[in-house]
Design a protein around this nucleic acid. Structure first.
Lengths: 204, 204
DNA sequence: CTTTTTTTATTGATCGTTCAATCAATAAAA
DNA sequence: TTTTATTGATTGAACGATCAATAAAAAAAG
C-alpha cells in the first residue's frame, strides 16, 4: 500500500524493530530478515532506505545517542535552579531515563559499545557523545572545584553512571533505577562536599 | 608434528588466539579460521579440542574469569593487614591487574558481556563470577557498616570498578590504571568514612 | 639398534547452511 | 497513465562442521 511520504515512517519502524530484534536475540543474530519481519515489511526495504544493514545499525545507534542527549537536555532546560548540583543532577536523571533503561535500549547500548571498538563509524559516534557528556560534567564541577579536581570528579561520576548502567543491563531483573539514582547522587554529594568541607544532607 | 600431551598446550594456544582475534577484529569477525591461523594450526583442530566454536568461546570466557579471580585472591592472600579496607583494596587492585586491563583481555571482556545476555551458558558464568565479587565486597563492608549500608556500598563500588573498566576499554588510549585506582580508592574511603557519622566533611 | 606397527595429532578439501544484497516484477496511490 | 513504494526469489560469498587422508612420534618386534 504505497502512500507518499513513507520514508520517515519506515525509517522509524525499522530502527525500532532493530532494537527489538537485538533485545530478543542479540546483535549477532539480528538478521535483516528478522528485523524486517519484526517491522512487518520485507527484507529488501532495508537496503532501500538505509543502503544496507550497516546503514541501519548506524542509524539505530544515532537514535539511541540522540535519545540520551534529548533526555538530558530536556531536564536541564526545565531547571529553575542554576546550581552545579542541579545541572549534574539533570545529567544523572537523564541517563537513568525510562527510555534508556528499558530492556531493548539497554541491550542495544551494550551491543553497540562492544561493536564500536571495531567499527570506526560507530566508534566516532560513541566518542563524540562520550566527550560531550564528560565536557558537560567537567564544566559544572569546574564551577565549584579546582581544575584538576573537577576533571577527576567528572571522570569518576561518568564511570559511576556507566557502571550502574552496565550492571543494570547485565542483570536479568534489570536496573533498579531508584537505587542507581541514589548511589549516583550520594557519590555526587561527596564529590561536591570536598569543596570547602561543606556538610551535605542526603538526597532522597 | 604430533607429540603426546599436546592437548593442554593447544587448548591454551587457542584460547590465547581467540582473545587476540577478538582484540583485532571483534567477536563478530573472529572466525574459526582466523583464530586457528593466529595460533598457527588448522581450523579443524578447534572442533577436535573444544567440540566447536561455542566450546572455544566458553573456554575463553572461563579463562578470563579465572584470571580475574586469581588476580584478586593472590593479592588477598598476600595481605598482612586484615582490615576491611585492605581486603577491598586487594579486590580493587586485582580488578585493575595488568593481565586484565591489556587490550585483548579488555575487549574480550566487553564482547562477552554483550554476548552473555543471549547465551545462557555465558550468562551463567558471568553471573556466578559477579555474585562472588559482590558477596566479597559486601562481606567486607559488613564488618564496618550496618546491613543496608554495606549492601549499597558494595553495589556502588562494584559499579565504580566496572564503569572505570568499561570506559577504559572504550577509550582508544586504554585505561589509565593509576587514575582508576585513585578514583576507586577515593570512593572507597568515602564509603568507609561514613561509618560512625552520617554527614561527613572531608578535611585534608 | 633398526625396522615395523600402532597410536596420536593434525590437516584441509568439501558440504550444507545462512546471510546480505540485488533487482525485475508488482501493486497501490497520484 | 505515471509515479512511488514494496516485494521476494535469486545470487554469490562466507562460515562452521565434518571426516577421510596424512604425517609424525611412540611402541613393539626383529
Amino acid at each position: 500500500m504505497p502512500k507518499v511520504g513513507m520514508e520517515p515512517i519506515r525509517r522509524q519502524q525499522l530502527i525500532h524493530a532493530t532494537m527489538a530484534a537485538i533485545d530478543e536475540v542479540g546483535l549477532a543474530e539480528a538478521t535483516i530478515m528478522r528485523i524486517a519481519s519484526h517491522a512487518g515489511v520485507s527484507a529488501g526495504i532495508i537496503s532501500h532506505y538505509f543502503g544496507g544493514k550497516d546503514g541501519l545499525l548506524e542509524a539505530t545507534m544515532r537514535q539511541i545517542l540522540t535519545d540520551l542527549t534529548d533526555a538530558v537536555s530536556m531536564r536541564r532546560m526545565a531547571l529553575n535552579d542554576n546550581s552545579p548540583r542541579a545541572h549534574i543532577g539533570a545529567i544523572i536523571e537523564g541517563n537513568f531515563d525510562r527510555t534508556q533503561v528499558t530492556g531493548p535500549a539497554a541491550k542495544t547500548w551494550l551491543a553497540f559499545w562492544a561493536s564500536s571498538m571495531h567499527k570506526p563509524m560507530l566508534q566516532r559516534l560513541q566518542r563524540v557523545n562520550d566527550r560531550r557528556l564528560y565536557a558537560n560534567l567537567c564544566h559544572q564541577f569546574r564551577r565549584v572545584l579546582p581544575h584538576a579536581e573537577a576533571r577527576k570528579a567528572a571522570r569518576g561520576l561518568a564511570a559511576m553512571i556507566d557502571g550502574l548502567w552496565l550492571r543494570g543491563a547485565l542483570t536479568p531483573e534489570g536496573l533498579d533505577t531508584d537505587e542507581a539514582r541514589h548511589l549516583a547522587y550520594h557519590y555526587l554529594d561527596q564529590l561536591l562536599a570536598h569543596h570547602g568541607c561543606q556538610h551535605v544532607a542526603f538526597a532522597h
